[in-house]
């Protein structure tokens, strides 16, 4: 019996990703897009019409990753001009930083000046988070679970999800925030002691995503609170989440 377990353990091997900041994901992974200059008006109208979530903004041509569902259809329409790189570090504390402009090929980063001081002074070595799914489709939730699993092991940085809001330093919201979850979300947030952070994980949480126009949503919570981190993706990759949080708490430059 014991020998069986040893055999399994041997094949299991070492699972953790040694450096979460430098993983080469498959080239097909849909991360930060790069837009070439010189998209013709005809091409512009084609992709604007195609984009399912109106994530394309004009003059200049831009893609808003807070709205993008990463379907990559604009690439397939203009394969030479819109390219999705496999760069998974796409989280930011500034909403506007999620907007990619034509001709830009720089990394998406946090603005360290705008990170609230107490976040870095208090949470740098331990950040406990309470997750609230408010209409999340369970893929974001599964990726957040995966961020703590044997592969990504976010716990090594002191970042963990906890059960009680009383034990939490912040809240991670997933989903477009349904009317039926709005009250529970507020109660949960109120129960977290100060100071506390708010992270929006996934396109649905950031902008409503494909559900934006639904009457079954109630996104008032977002209007009255300061958001500390936006993590785009549909769902966000665990590495996107971990890198964003590490940068926010000042563990990574």
């Amino acid at each position: 019996m014991f020998l069986d377990e040893l055999k399994i353990f041997y094949r299991h091997g070492r699972q953790y990703v040694p450096d979460v900041t430098a993983v080469g994901l498959t080239p097909l992974f849909r991360g930060r897009p790069v837009i070439c200059r010189g998209i013709t008006p005809e091409e512009v109208s084609r992709v604007v019409e195609l984009c399912p979530v109106k994530a394309i903004l004009l003059s200049p041509f831009r893609i808003d990753l807070g709205k993008c569902v990463f379907c990559k259809e604009c690439h397939f329409a203009l394969p030479e001009k819109i390219i999705f790189s496999n760069d998974y570090k796409i989280a930011s504390n500034i909403r506007e930083n999620l907007i990619i402009t034509e001709g830009d090929d720089h990394l998406i980063q946090l603005d360290p000046e705008k990170v609230r001081k107490e976040i870095r002074s208090i949470f740098k070595h331990a950040l406990k988070l309470r997750q609230v799914s408010a209409g999340g489709d369970n893929s974001v939730e599964m990726e957040l679970n995966a961020a703590g699993n044997v592969n990504f092991d976010m716990g090594r940085y002191g970042i963990e999800f906890v059960a009680s809001p009383r034990h939490a330093d912040g809240i991670v919201i997933t989903g477009p925030i349904t009317q039926n979850m709005a009250a529970a979300l507020q109660i949960c947030y109120d129960a977290i002691p100060d100071p506390k952070v708010i992270i929006l994980a996934g396109t649905d949480a950031i902008s409503g995503g494909i559900f934006k126009d639904s009457t079954a949503l109630n996104r008032e919570f977002l209007q009255s609170h300061h958001i500390d981190l936006y993590v785009p993706g549909n769902p966000p990759h665990p590495l996107t989440f971990i890198n964003g949080v590490l940068e926010m708490i000042g563990r990574k430059q």
Partner: peptide, 9 residues
């Protein structure tokens, strides 16, 4: 709690 009104969308 998860009702997003998808059928109408």
């Amino acid at each position: 709690y998860q009702h997003r009104g998808i059928e109408r969308l």
